[in-house]
């Protein structure tokens, strides 16, 4: 066994446990990026270089989608707490 597969396996295990145990959005997304790094290293150690390039291009797209969703969701939850008692009466 070489060093790159061992390190990638360690990164996969730590990232998978860390995504579940952390409770903040940003911490979860950082640990998810850590898990993706392990996945790309493990794909590369099988000599599938084209799949590795495709995967490393698509990784920031998924991260940006999750970040925009988390930002919009936090903003929505803040603003709805304030008006939720009177707005539905006016809407009807």
């Amino acid at each position: 066994m070489d060093v790159l597969p061992l390190i990638s396996i360690l990164s996969c295990i730590l990232g998978g446990i860390g995504v579940i145990l952390h409770t903040d959005y940003i911490n979860k997304i950082i640990m998810f990026a850590f898990l993706e790094a392990g996945l790309i290293g493990l794909i590369t150690s099988f000599y599938y270089l084209d799949v590795s390039i495709i995967s490393s291009i698509l990784e920031p797209i998924g991260t940006v989608i999750l970040l925009l969703g988390a930002l919009k969701y936090a903003h929505l939850k803040r603003t709805k707490k304030k008006y939720s008692s009177e707005v539905p009466i006016l809407a009807r």
């Binding site: 959005y25 950082i30 490393s56 291009i57 991260t63 988390a70």
Partner: peptide, 23 residues
């Protein structure tokens, strides 16, 4: 492969740092 991995992961890290400020 190493260059493409490094640049795309830097873009991801940049987006995370920007979102912490907005949050």
């Amino acid at each position: 492969t190493a260059v493409v991995y490094f640049i795309s992961s830097t873009i991801s890290s940049n987006a995370i740092a920007h979102t912490i400020g907005e949050m």
